[in-house]
Simulated scan of single mutants.
Amino acid sequence: MLTVVAHPLIQHKLSLMRSVETGVKEFRELAAEVSMLLAYEAMRDLELSPTHLQTPLQEGEFPMLSGKKLALVAILRAGLVMTDGILSLVPAARVGHIGLYRDPLTLKPVAYYNKLPADIAERRVFLTDPMLATGGSAGAAIQFLKDAGAQTIKLMSILAAPEGVAVIEAEHPDVEIVVAAVDERLNDHGYIVPGLGDAGDRIYGTK
């Protein structure tokens, strides 16, 4: 299932990210802010249970998070900035990392690093990758999470291409995709058009 979060604040910040005039510091800050706002939607279905508390005036039952604990898993390297933004909302979440890079010739993902919480099977997993382009890296990361025992996975991306969405929906129909926007297409080099360029390069100031 695909969810596009069309909130005005998200769309405004995404437009700033698209601009070639936006520098590294501002781009990184915007990416973290958009990620945090996306998390509100992605985590809308978290379970709550009544908890007994004492307010300054009286005792009562009030809703607090319950159910499965959370894990934020970043696809390196660009997914890190999203995870950092979301941690401000759920600081108790465990963090994992999956290192993948795209072969420039085949456009296929190549794994180089994987480190997940030991109890990943007992957690709701939010996988972060700013750009869902070909879907190769995200699809491979989702499969790695499933192989490690993860049962509930949501993919969070700032920007997606229709081709990438189609790949994830075909390979992992049980995984919800939460994005800020779906752009027109991929170009011949596998970049999202009109897009915002290479998210990793713009976050870290590399070329």
Rank of each mutant, 00 (worst) to 15 (best):
F126W: 12
P8Q: 05
L196T: 01
T206A: 09
T83L: 14
V4E: 12
R102V: 09
E61S: 14
D201P: 10
F27H: 03
A78T: 12
Y40G: 08
K25D: 10
A42I: 11
G164P: 06
Y40S: 06
K207Q: 14
L132S: 08
L100Q: 01
D147M: 12
A6S: 13
Y191E: 07
D174Y: 03
L53H: 15
L57I: 15
R123I: 06
A180E: 01
V81H: 04
L76R: 10
E122S: 13
A31H: 00
L100W: 02
A150L: 09
V182E: 04
D147P: 01
D188S: 12
A141D: 01
L155M: 13
L196V: 05
A42K: 10
A138D: 06
A180K: 00
A141I: 05
P8R: 04
G195V: 05
A121I: 01
T51N: 13
H189V: 01
E169A: 08
T106L: 11
R18V: 07
A111D: 03
A92K: 14
Y113M: 08
A42R: 07
V179F: 01
M82W: 10
Y101L: 09
K154T: 15
I86Q: 06
I98W: 04
M64Y: 13
V73H: 08
A42H: 10
A133F: 06
A181N: 10
A133P: 09
K115R: 15
G149Y: 11
L37G: 02
L53R: 15
A181V: 00
A6T: 13
P91S: 09
G136T: 07
G197M: 10
S88G: 00
G136V: 04
T106S: 15
P162S: 08
Y112M: 12
G79W: 10
V24Q: 14
A138R: 05
K146V: 07
M156C: 11
R44P: 06
E169R: 11
L159W: 02
L2C: 07
E122P: 00
P104Q: 06
V182D: 04
P117M: 11
A160C: 13
D201H: 12
K115M: 08
T55L: 14
G164Q: 05
V182R: 01
